[in-house]
């Protein structure tokens, strides 16, 4: 049988084709990793249940108000945002057993034994419709930061590493223990106009 000599395909344009594809993917790609403050919204109250007055003692509530001029009112006093983190930490821990700060309860926690926890504290955040989003996020961030710092301090003291460095599978009990001691309780009031 006569065999025709197969000619080699010219691969010179291969680079051009690959470049074309490459440029397409370069243009259509977005490298941004999405990150942000993760929060859980409270579920919508059932229609039938009336607004019940939840009985929380005054000393257990930390009221944070932000008005439409982005001013901060914490527990009835004007505050600069850079002081908010420390104030929040003091409220959560209540280091000097201040009768105006939240009451402590003794709870038995794994790894830690009996610990005094301000178990019933609540941080209540209210903002006006005119508050800027930037301010709102800054306040949220500071409140979350207060908890993170406390958790980190506790973990550092106990295990010598930060809370985020605990292994989510291996150290599940440890994470749970720390979260029991410093449980995040940031509640946002039902929206209304704070005015200002």
């Amino acid at each position: 049988m006569a065999r025709r000599q197969l000619q080699e395909i010219n691969a010179g344009s291969m680079a051009d084709i690959a470049f074309l594809l490459l440029i397409f993917f370069l243009v259509s790609t977005t490298m941004d990793t999405d990150s942000g403050i993760l929060r859980r919204l409270p579920p919508m109250p059932e229609e039938e249940t009336k607004d019940e007055q939840v009985d929380v003692k005054e000393r257990n509530i930390f009221v944070v108000l932000v008005n439409r001029n982005d001013q901060l009112l914490v527990e009835g006093e004007l505050m600069n945002i850079k002081d908010l983190r420390e104030a929040t930490k003091e409220f959560i821990v209540n280091p000097n057993d201040d009768p105006d700060l939240p009451a402590k309860e003794i709870v038995d926690v794994k790894y830690f034994g009996p610990v005094e926890i301000t178990k019933k504290h609540v941080i209540s955040l209210q903002n006006d419709r005119g508050t800027s989003y930037e301010m709102y996020i800054a306040v949220q961030n500071e409140l979350v930061a207060a908890y993170s710092e406390l958790r980190d301090e506790l973990c550092m003291k106990k295990w010598g590493k930060k809370f985020d460095d605990l292994d989510s599978e291996k150290d599940e009990d440890k994470i749970e223990a720390v979260e029991t001691i410093y449980d995040r309780k940031i509640s946002e009031a039902e929206p209304r106009n704070v005015g200002g």
Binding site: D34, I37, L38, R40, L41, I81, I137, E142
Partner: peptide, 13 residues
Amino acid sequence: LKINYSTNEGDPV
């Protein structure tokens, strides 16, 4: 109910 306020990394204050 699970939401994420998308932000950049940095000091908000």
